[in-house]
Simulated assay, not measured.
Amino acid sequence: MSKKCESPFCYAPEATCSLGELRHEDCPTWQKSTAAAEGTDSAPPTDGLALPWSGNSLGGADRSFATGRSSAKVVAVVGPAGAGKTTLLAAWYLLIGRGTELREHTFAGSYTLTGWENIAHALRWTSSGGPGFPPHTSSGSGRHPGLLHMALRKSVTGAVTDMFFADAPGEWFRLWAVNRDGAEASGARWISEHADVIVIIADSEALSGAERGIARSVLAQIFQRVGHERRGRSVAVVWTKSDVEVPPLLKSAIETSAKQHLGNHTTFSLTVRIESDPGGERPFMDLLHWVTEVRGESYSATPSRPDTNDNFLVFGHGQ
């Protein structure tokens, strides 16, 4: 059997079939690869053409078909294992699904609704019990990150922004922070190279627990790696599980480390334990608004008028 699809833009079986087949074994290209490897006749022609997506998480090569209508933004959610990265993504999806207001945007669709449901189902109330937490993203699922897609429409202008959120295991980022060029860091390296916005997760629970020294060391290594590869991109540090108190001296040391390695950055605090605070979901939406609207430091918030009398160059910048 062929171990890899012969299509240069498909990473099956490590990621979803690029032609949208739910089972990569059903893809004509995969069947052709297998037939060639086994020296048998070519696979029979298919009766139809599958859509270029299946509803599951997208691969890195799948962004092109979704970006022709608008600008697109890749959001890297970076942090150690168990810090709450997948829970953050699931919370965004569920809050939008229940109609929570997102300031200046409205939900305009997704190519990965199945992928969103796969991570969000654990947070739902069911007849058999209350919500829990999504399972940890497995580091054995492949070398390429899963991208969750969400289209957001600007309420005033109607413009659509396609957002891609990287759902990747924390083990990738730990290895990447230590050795950027290591083979096991290839997934995190791809995210770092393609991300437009970087969100670093600081796990309050881990940083206040018995192994807080190790948690602090890993987080400091991630700060340092992101700082080296930032290239003017906007960065946020998000304290998850903020209902758990981190020792003040330790928190101060971590904030100093973030400032030292990252420079300018934005800070958020989140907790899913909002029983006593009806407005506790607002910080989640504030963070989503930030990643949607923020632009890199190399961009100007308002376009400047060109210093020229050439009408062609002035066109589009206002008079």
Rank of each mutant, 00 (worst) to 15 (best):
M1R: 10
K3P: 07
E6I: 14
P8R: 05
S18F: 09
D26L: 06
P28Y: 01
W30S: 05
Q31T: 02
K32D: 12
K32Q: 13
T34C: 09
A37C: 08
D41M: 09
S42R: 12
P44N: 01
P45T: 02
T46S: 14
T46C: 11
T46N: 12
L49K: 12
L51N: 13
P52A: 02
L58S: 02
G59F: 01
G60N: 10
A61K: 07
S64Q: 13
F65Q: 14
A66F: 15
R69W: 09
S71D: 14
S71M: 14
A72V: 04
A72R: 02
A72D: 04
K73F: 03
K73I: 02
V74F: 04
V74P: 01
A76F: 00
Y93S: 09
I96V: 13
G97C: 07
R98W: 11
G99E: 00
G99S: 04
T100L: 13
E101D: 13
L102I: 03
R103M: 12
E104H: 09
T106F: 10
T112K: 00
L113G: 09
W116G: 01
I119L: 05
I119G: 00
H121T: 15
L123R: 04
R124M: 08
W125P: 14
W125A: 15
G129P: 03
G130Q: 08
H136W: 11
H136M: 15
G142K: 05
R143F: 15
H144S: 07
H144A: 07
G146H: 00
L147I: 05
L147A: 01
M150I: 14
K154A: 15
S155Y: 10
V156G: 15
V160C: 05
T161I: 09
T161E: 07
M163G: 04
M163V: 09
F165G: 04
G170I: 00
W172A: 04
V178T: 15
G182W: 03
A185T: 06
W190S: 10
H194L: 12
H194R: 12
V197H: 01
I198D: 02
V199L: 07
I200Q: 06
E205K: 14
S208F: 02
R216P: 08
S217P: 10
V218M: 07
A220F: 11
A220D: 12
Q221V: 08
F223G: 06
Q224M: 13
V226S: 02
H228Q: 12
E229P: 08
R230F: 07
R231A: 13
G232F: 06
R233C: 05
S234R: 09
V235G: 01
V235S: 03
D243S: 06
L249M: 11
L250I: 13
K251E: 11
S252D: 12
I254H: 04
I254K: 02
K259H: 13
K259L: 10
L262N: 02
T266M: 07
T267W: 05
T267E: 07
F268V: 04
S269I: 05
T271Q: 06
T271S: 09
R273G: 11
E275W: 10
E275Y: 12
D277M: 06
G280L: 03
R282Y: 11
H289G: 08
V291A: 01
V294K: 01
V294C: 08
R295F: 08
E297Y: 08
Y299M: 12
T302N: 10
T302M: 14
R305K: 11
R305P: 06
N311Q: 13
F312V: 15
H317K: 08
G318D: 03
G318P: 03
Q319V: 11
